[in-house]
C-alpha cells in the first residue's frame, strides 16, 4: 500500500494563540515537520483547509460559548487522535477564573452591552466535553514536548512526557532551591515538569503554569508557605488560582485553605 502522510489539524477555542504559535516557533524543525506530515487544517497559518477526517488534531483553548461546545464535538468526530495543547484546553485556562464569579457581572465590568455576548457561565477543559487522547500541559506548552507528542502519535507510540514535579528538573539542572535558599514562595513541588525549571533558574518561584503534577501534595506546601514563609492566606489562594485555577488538584488546594479559615 502506498504511504500516505499523516494529516494534522490545529483547532482554536478560547485562548491567546500562544500554544499553536509554538508550532510555528519550531524554526529549526518546522520544515522537517512539514515533510513528515500533511497540514490539513491550521487557519492561523494557511487559508487552504481540508474537511477531515484528520489523523491527529491539536486543540488549543477552552470551551466558553454554546457554539464552541458544539464545534468541539464535530472536531472529535473528525479526529482519530485528539490532543489538547496548553492550560486552556487542559484545565480551562486563566479564563476559568470566571467560574467562581457571576459571568454577567464580569461581562458588564468589561463590555457596555453584555447582552450582545453569547457566553457560558463556565470556562471548561476539552475533556469535560469529549474524550481526549492526550493532554499536553503548559501556559504555554514547551516546544520540545510538542515535537515529542506529535512524533509519538505519528509513530503510534506513547509520548514520553514526565509527570514528576518541577523540583526534579530544578535539581537536575543544578539550580539552588529558591524556596530553601532565599525563602521565595515556589509552586515547584506540586507543579508538573516540562518548562525546564525556568522560574527558579530566574530567581523567582514557580507560578504553576504547567498545572499540578501527578499526585501533588498541596497541603504540606500550603502549610510551608504559611508557616515558614509567612505568606498570607489570600496570597497562597491566588497562587493556585491563576493559569490552572480549574484543575481539580489546585481547586481542592484552594478549598482546603478556605475551609480551614
Amino acid at each position: 500500500m502506498a504511504y500516505r502522510k499523516p494529516t494534522l489539524a490545529v483547532h482554536k477555542f478560547a485562548s491567546c494563540d500562544g500554544c499553536q504559535l509554538t508550532l510555528l516557533d519550531c524554526e529549526d524543525e518546522l520544515l522537517a515537520v512539514l515533510d513528515a506530515i500533511e497540514i490539513a487544517y491550521f487557519v492561523e497559518a494557511t487559508r487552504a483547509t481540508a474537511d477531515g477526517p484528520y489523523d491527529v488534531s491539536l486543540v488549543e483553548g477552552s470551551i466558553t460559548t454554546p457554539a464552541d461546545a458544539d464545534r468541539i464535538r464535530r472536531v472529535r468526530e473528525k479526529s482519530r487522535v485528539l490532543i489538547t495543547i496548553g492550560a486552556c484546553a487542559t484545565s480551562g485556562g486563566i479564563q476559568a477564573l470566571r467560574n467562581a464569579r457571576d459571568v454577567g457581572q464580569l461581562a458588564s465590568a468589561v463590555y457596555p452591552h453584555p447582552d450582545y455576548l453569547d457566553v457560558l457561565d463556565q470556562s471548561t477543559p476539552i475533556a469535560a466535553h469529549v474524550p481526549v487522547d492526550f493532554e499536553l500541559r503548559g501556559c504555554p506548552i514547551d516546544k520540545g514536548q510538542l515535537l515529542e507528542v506529535i512524533s509519538a502519535f505519528v509513530l503510534a507510540r506513547r509520548p514520553c512526557i514526565p509527570t514528576y514535579s518541577v523540583c526534579v528538573e530544578c535539581k537536575s539542572s543544578g539550580a539552588v532551591c529558591t524556596m530553601v535558599a532565599r525563602g521565595t514562595p515556589c509552586l515547584g513541588p506540586v507543579t508538573q515538569a516540562g518548562c525546564g525549571a525556568l522560574c527558579p533558574r530566574m530567581n523567582r518561584g514557580c507560578y504553576g503554569c504547567f498545572g499540578p503534577m501527578e499526585d501533588p501534595r498541596t497541603g504540606p506546601l500550603s502549610a510551608w508557605w504559611e508557616e515558614e514563609l509567612a505568606q498570607p492566606r489570600d496570597r497562597i489562594v491566588r497562587a493556585y488560582r491563576t493559569f490552572n485555577v480549574a484543575s481539580p488538584a489546585f481547586a481542592s488546594a484552594v478549598d482546603s485553605l478556605e475551609d480551614s479559615e
Partner: peptide, 29 residues
Amino acid sequence: FEPPRFFEGFLQGRSALEAPDITARICGI
C-alpha cells in the same frame, strides 16, 4: 467572534504585581 475572556473583570482583586503575568495571556503573539 473570538470568545470574550473578561481579563479586565478578573484582574479585579488581584495584586498589581500579578498584572504582567496575567495580561501576557491576552496574546501569545
